[in-house]
Structure formats: structure tokens, C-alpha cells
Amino acid sequence: MELSTFFQQLANALSLGSLYALIAIGYTMVYGILRLINFAHGDVFMLGAYFAFYAISALAMPWWIAFVVALGLTALFGIGLERAAYRPLRDSPKISVMISAIGASFLIQNLGVVIFGGRPKSFPSIALFDTVVHFGPVSVLSVSLFIPVVTFLSLAGLLWIVNKTKTGLAMRAVSTDLDAARLMAIDVNKIVSITFGIGSLLAALGGIMWTMRYPQLNPLMGVMPGLKCFIAAVIGGIGNIGGAVLGGFLLGMMEILIVAFLPELTGYRDAFAFVMLIIVLLVKPAGLLGKAQAVKV
């Protein structure tokens, strides 16, 4: 393989990994607070992309306004999703909430088919993100350069909120012990809403950048990335934000590099994520950065 091909693939891997990381954060945050896998997270990601699409194409907004609107709407949608599908089941067995999450996922997908139509749509081209940039023999789409930067900035902002603010302290308290946090006068519902809002906002950010990178939208576009990012979060150690980012990057890198170096395995690209999951669960069940928890019996 030539060096230029290697760098080309590395650039691809970096942007795919960043996108995975951004989505995986949403899974891990919700799990950290509620011990719930939000299976509808991939569909929230899809909605973010559609909101941006309609804001630009139907409402003719400038792209940056459209993006802000889409991020806001998706965050609100995530908050509403928690209110409608998860909060009423807060004290029910975990399995009920999980089934509700799976149901919500199917509902959003199928409503998407009804409302947006099943036929794929193509995302409008935005010059800033849609130019090809050449570095010697390596050429990448400009959006691929933005993706890692945006991911890095979002991650920095998130870590700031979690570690340096009152809201973040409350989030950590709720995540350690929900009942004790409540008795410290923390409004748990508010913290849960904020968590869903932030997670959904990051998913929307991922969704928008995803459609600019792979410029096609369809109502099922969230299924595969959603599943893979869930795996990324588990690989990194679910509940751990740094772990989700690490898992996302690892998964993205491995996926692209395997396809690049072993082209005959391209067809197994999606299966690869699951193989990786199985290996990690066998070797380090708590995930790479997860702490093994002793269960009191």
C-alpha cells in the first residue's frame, strides 16, 4: 500500500471515529444517570439530520441558523422522549424501560417513514463543507476536517460542564445515588432532562455532520450507527464519557483500517463491530475504561 493511501484512510478513520464518539457519548451519559440503554438514541441522531435538512431545503434558512434550529429541536425531542417513554417507568423493572426504549425506537423510525417518506433524500451541498481539500496526493472533503475539531470542542465543553459546574456536580451525584441526591434537594427530573437534552444535542450534531459526509438521508439511517455507537460505549466502559470517546475512535479506526488493508473483508464491515464487542466482553467485561463493580450479595 502506498503512503498516500494510508493517510487517506487515516483521514477517513479519524472522521468516522469522531462521529461514533459523538453519538456514543449520548448512550453513556444516559446510562450513567439512569442505568438505561436508550435504544432510540440512533433515531434521535436521524431526526437531527432531518431537522437540518428541512430547515435548509424547505424553510430556506442559511445553513448555520438551520443547524442551530436542528440542534435545539433535537434536544427538545430527546427531553420529550424521556418524559413520555422513560419517566413513567422510572420505578419499574429495568426490563420494562428497555422494552419501552426499543418500542420508542421502532415508533420513531416508522413515523419517519410516514412523515419524511421512505425514499432517500440527499442533503443540500454547503460550499464550506463540500469542497475537496488536497494535501499533496491526499484529498479529503472539507467536512472531514471539521468533524474531529467539532467533536473535540464538544467533548471539552461537556467535560467542563460535568466537572466544573454546579449542574455537573448534581449530575455526578444523581449518577452515584439517585435517592440520596434527591434528599440533597437535587431536582432529579431536571437533571435527567438536562442529560437527555445534552445527549440528544450531541446526537444531532453527529447526525448533521454524518449527512454532510455521507450525503444521504433515510428514516433508517440511525439504526446501524446507533447500534455501533452503543457497542463503542460498551467497549469503552459504559457510563464513562472518556470511555465512549475512546470506544468510538477505536471502532471507527478499526473499521476503516480493516477495510483498507483487507479489502476482501469489506462485506463483513458491520459484523466487525460485533466481533470486537464480543472480544472486549470476554476479556474485560466492564469495558476498557470501566471499573469492575463488586456486587453485594
Binding site: 454546579k166 449542574t167 456536580l169 455526578r172 451525584a173 452515584t176 445515588d177 440533597m184 438536562i194
Partner: peptide
């Protein structure tokens, strides 16, 4: 039932925030 991932001071600060009335934006 202490918040076991936090240090001693943070455990107390969590509870102090009740009487500290500032919005999410001001705090962020």
C-alpha cells in the same frame, strides 16, 4: 450513602447548592 466517586468537599458542596440559586447558564 456518600457520593463515592467524589471527594469529601464535593460531597458537601452538592448539598450546599440547594441554597445557591443560580441558573444553568450562569453556572455553565
Amino acid at each position: 450513602r456518600l457520593f463515592k466517586d467524589m471527594n469529601v468537599l464535593e460531597n458537601v458542596l452538592v448539598a450546599c447548592h440547594l441554597r445557591m440559586d443560580v441558573g444553568v447558564f450562569a453556572s455553565t
